[in-house]
Nucleic acid binder design. Structure first.
Length: 223
DNA sequence: CCCTGATTCGC
DNA sequence: GCGAATCAGG
């Protein structure tokens, strides 16, 4: 396999994104991990957190000693700043927003799942209409009785749920005032009309959707 | 063992 | 210039 301009460009981009040499080699195909590393060095793409890079002299001592024994190099000029920036490996977000509790299974008309696409490297592209900030999970809280006080008497608790009232949770489980919406449901859905509008978002016409942002790796490859 | 990147050196 | 072999750390 030859290093065409395209492949070199791809190597540069993937290397810059923090892909490991093995991953890049697999993406490119036809080359080994060593080939990728060798090429990256020849291109001057170095400066990646290396396990061996640690100031241990043994690694650097063995080879150079045999390679240039009679030529003690004078003091090197100032080394380059040596950016120790550890390129974060792309990782999929781990905490999906907690779905509202449905104590009774939704009767019919299950909402269609949001369609996502996965880019190379495991990036999970955000779908339109999914742009809201992630909900931070509530910290562990002390458990309290369902209706300990009078001001909870008129709230819809877990035991009050049935298949005719809205099961949209308000607050966080375990909190003293945690309860459910309790409004009459939008027929066919587990939530009332207003909470249905929050839970289910209509697909926008294709022409109205915001195009996905340009991807740093140049987009999906066709293979 | 697996993985990683760095380096060397014959081609 | 290329990359397999090798080294060394996690």
């Amino acid at each position: 396999m030859a290093w065409t301009d395209e492949r070199i460009d791809q190597l540069k981009r993937l290397w810059g994104q923090g892909m490991t040499a093995s991953q890049i080699a697999e993406e490119l195909g036809g080359v080994s991990r060593n080939a990728v590393i060798g090429k990256a060095h020849r291109l001057g793409l170095e400066a990646r957190p290396s396990p061996v890079k640690g100031g241990d002299a043994s690694a650097a001592a063995a080879a150079p000693a045999a390679a240039a024994p009679a030529a003690p190099p004078p003091e090197k000029p100032v080394e380059k700043p040596a950016p120790v920036v550890a390129a974060p490996k792309p990782v999929a977000p781990a905490a999906p927003a907690p779905a509202p509790v449905a104590a009774t299974p939704a009767p019919t008309a299950a909402p269609q799942p949001m369609v996502r696409s996965i880019g190379p490297g495991g990036f999970q592209r955000q779908a339109p209409g999914e742009q809201s900030a992630p909900i931070t999970p509530a910290p562990p809280r002390r458990l309290v009785p369902a209706k300990p006080s009078a001001d909870m008497a008129d709230k819809t608790g877990l035991l009050d749920l049935n298949d005719r009232i809205c099961k949209w949770p308000l607050g966080h489980p375990g909190e003293p005032d945690f309860h459910f919406c309790g409004q009459p449901i939008n027929p066919g859905f587990p939530y009332c009309l207003s909470h249905c509008s929050v839970a289910y978002q209509a697909q926008l016409p294709r022409r109205d959707r915001r195009p996905p942002p340009p991807l740093p790796f140049g987009g999906p490859r066709v293979r």
